[in-house]
């Protein structure tokens, strides 16, 4: 993530470095600028993270420090079918949402990349849902999906039909949560793509227009290569975000039916606050952390290799 976004400004700055070597000497006092953040970062992120690792090696509840059990919590996780199911659910959800968000976001950006009033209004509409909180988003979508008197049921009712049971059919619940999530999150990818499109110099398109290139060819050979980096950025941001699915699943289905929509974060939350099994919850947190770290690393390496070959 860092690399994709940082590489080009860094390169541009490179020649300047040589001339001011003297002021670029490492000095302790320069660190004063990063110190305030580092203090907060260490105190509230690193320390809790390390504490979490320590906790994960203990049998602990909310009211006692517990006793050391080594890797027993990890062994329990390994043997817990529902934990594996939660990992699977999380990957399935990422698979459902991320490609859709990237593709729909790009299509909307292409369609709305014009200066008309209509386009401006439509951009507002598509971004508006992003500002709502998860409690409201899920309330809205429950009232859409709920059988009997939901929006979907009402619309189906006009045709004398009953809608699919989006919130209770094991095959559909994840899709329902994904639909609500895409509705909620589509604004950001769209905006990122829009701004990338704005950066493409207009004369390239004019040249293409003179060559009578059709819409698809223009898109394939001009637009797409120009926004490749943004595409990667969108995909990575969304993978990291959607990996952390929690509120929608908790509030729309509570992980049901029978855990088919329980993501990892909900598993962690329940372990800690419903079962009071802090050690188990902490162990599951570490697994989630490692998975996200791997995803970020893979992206980092892939984008670096791309950067070198380009």
């Amino acid at each position: 993530m860092a690399d994709a976004a940082l590489s080009s400004p860094a390169n541009r700055a490179a020649p300047a470095k040589a001339r001011v070597q003297n002021v670029q000497a490492p000095l302790w006092r320069n660190a004063l600028f990063v110190l305030p953040f580092l203090v907060v970062f260490v105190a509230l992120l690193v320390v809790p993270l390390v504490w979490g690792i320590w906790l994960s090696l203990h049998k602990a509840d909310a009211f006692s420090s517990g006793r050391f059990v080594g890797f027993a919590n990890y062994v329990r996780l390994y043997n817990d079918k529902i934990f594996w199911q939660a990992i699977g659910n999380t990957f399935y959800f990422v698979l459902l949402t991320v490609p859709a968000l990237a593709v729909i976001g790009l299509m909307l950006a292409l369609a709305l990349n014009s200066r008309t009033r209509t386009a401006a209004v439509l951009r507002t509409v598509f971004f508006a849902s992003s500002v709502l909180s998860v409690t409201i988003v899920t309330l809205i979508w429950r009232i859409v999906f709920v059988p009997g008197f939901g929006l979907l049921a009402t619309v189906y009712g006009w045709f004398g039909a009953a809608p699919p049971a989006f919130l209770s059919d094991p095959d559909l619940v994840m899709i329902a949560i994904a639909i609500a999530t895409i509705w909620w999150c589509i604004g950001l990818p769209m905006m990122l793509f829009l701004s990338a499109l704005q950066q493409i110099p207009g004369d390239i398109y004019e040249a293409a227009a003179l060559d009578n290139a059709n819409r698809w060819r223009t898109f394939r050979y001009i637009t797409l290569p120009s926004i490749k980096r943004t595409f990667v950025l969108v995909v990575v941001i969304q993978i990291v975000l959607q990996f952390q699915l929690f509120g929608q699943a908790k509030l729309m289905t509570n992980g049901g039916p029978n855990n088919v929509s329980k993501p990892m974060v909900l598993y962690i939350y329940e372990a800690a606050f419903t079962k009071w099994d802090l050690g188990l919850g902490a162990a599951a947190s570490e697994v989630l952390f490692v998975l996200i770290l791997i995803a970020a690393m893979v992206q980092f390496l892939v984008s670096r290799r791309k950067g070198e070959s380009a």
Partner: peptide
């Protein structure tokens, strides 16, 4: 932990009754 037990029973029973 009767509330946690309730969750487990409910989940498994629902899976059995709905044929999951």
């Amino acid at each position: 932990r009767q509330f946690a037990i309730q969750d487990i029973i409910g989940q498994e029973m629902s899976a059995a009754i709905t044929g999951q």
